[in-house]
Design a protein around this nucleic acid. Structure first.
Lengths: 244, 244
DNA sequence: GCACAATTGTAATCCTGCTTATATTTCTTC
DNA sequence: GAAGAAATATAAGCAGGATTACAATTGTGC
């Protein structure tokens, strides 16, 4: 219970609530620990809860009729998912799966809706969040249309590095991602990703490992973009400030 | 002023407000009439107003560094755009342009935020709207990755028919779209769209015209999907109920 | 520790759809 | 009504990336 409270307090979306509300939430939410690859919900299931990631990463995916997968997002601890349950979504439009051994907090839709009603400001914060994710999708749609695999790969590597990368003393960043996950993130085949990674590896920009890769020279990776594309990714320059 | 009130009252997002609020909105909003191809705002401009479409269609686009365009959405009368201004968006991430001679209503962000504060329920409705558009983007991302041009084209034609099509007595639906617009909607080249349309034309599924096309056999178009893809577009069966 | 599953590495082949090119039709404007 | 702009039509050549295939490596469960 204390632990639950701690986690909730440390989620950006909830941290501003007064102690009383936080305790109520901690009391009424369920905490679940689970192994890697556990699925929290599948597409088409009833949308009746909101999740808060406490530990591990969670991937949100859509699967085509033929079983091919696209990754909509990969969440880090402190982020919530399934929040579209409070936007009139009846059934899930994606699946949610743990990428690592994970811990999540489950809040019923009813409870969350009550919270929104008690704190109108919360609705604005959720609105902000949903809007932000929508804009991210718009950017990805654009990249998918305009950028070749190599660029999409670099953009995604840098993006993932900011969210999930572990920074080393020497400035390199390690990422816990399989080539398959990367492929599903950028909408390419696993082989195309492997080939492109091999090329970057040869250029000394990164190292590959089993289920992981290490960005040795993030700035160098970024430079592979600017040759063909205009300078237009100022946010990515923040890469240096990656959380360690 | 009366006309302004009428339009606002007839927008789904506002219709539930009490008369008093509607009048206030009508009073404080600006009504603008403009020609086809007028741009309401460009990407990177300050996000300080929300728009309501009264007449004509409005397209929202993103443009790549090289000048290529992707259409994020095409709005019909009664719909709003620019609403991300109230989600913490500082600068526009897309441009908005009139596809027809149009009329829009402009509400300042401040005014809209006040409205949200006075009516917390409004925040929930906007949240619902933004969530819906996010899900649409997720679907398009998936289609872009999994579907070939032919399928994307059909899906888009049927989708556009529902939103903007004019239904004829004989069951055919006419759409005011250029091939270029279609190409930008599905992320393909204009030529690829033309070629595919030619094929459908030959199969008697549609007719093409200058800046317009007529879906002669929407169900037949849909059937071209089910051969290669599984049946998985139940919503599209509503096509028969297209607004006339 | 051994069998099996998952992941990575690499290469040849093939195909969708982009590019480029050119002609024609329809609208707009003066 | 003529000239120019915008949109449609069509086709050849090319290329990025998917598919297919197979080998090698690393993890996992009994």
């Amino acid at each position: 219970m204390q632990r639950r409270l701690w986690y909730i307090k440390n989620a950006a979306l909830f941290s501003w609530l007064q102690e009383e509300e936080l305790q109520r939430l901690a009391m009424r939410s369920e905490m679940v620990e689970c192994k890697r690859n556990t699925t929290f919900y599948f597409a088409q299931e009833q949308s009746d809860s909101i999740f808060l990631v406490k530990q591990g990463r969670v991937k949100l995916t859509r699967t085509s009729a033929e079983g091919r997968e696209v990754i909509l997002d990969i969440l880090a601890p402190g982020e919530i998912f399934g929040e579209l349950a409070v936007t009139g979504e009846e059934l899930r439009t994606h699946s949610a799966t743990a990428l690592d051994d994970a811990m999540v907090c489950i809040i019923t839709r009813r409870e969350f809706e009550d919270l929104l009603r008690r704190h109108p400001e919360m609705a604005l914060r959720v609105l902000k969040l949903v809007g932000l994710r929508r804009r991210e999708l718009e950017m990805r749609l654009e990249d998918l249309i305009f950028q070749p695999v190599a660029n999409r790969l670099v953009l995604t590597l840098l993006w993932q590095a900011r969210r999930h990368g572990k920074k080393d003393e020497d400035g390199s960043v390690s990422l816990p991602l399989t080539q398959k996950d990367l492929a599903h993130l950028i909408g390419a085949s696993r082989e195309a990703v492997a080939e492109q990674l091999a090329e970057f590896k040869q250029q000394g920009l990164l190292r590959t490992g089993y289920r992981s890769l290490v960005l040795i020279d993030p700035k160098g990776l970024m430079r592979t973009l600017t040759t063909e594309t205009e300078m237009e990714f100022p946010e990515l320059l923040d890469l240096v400030k990656i959380s360690g």
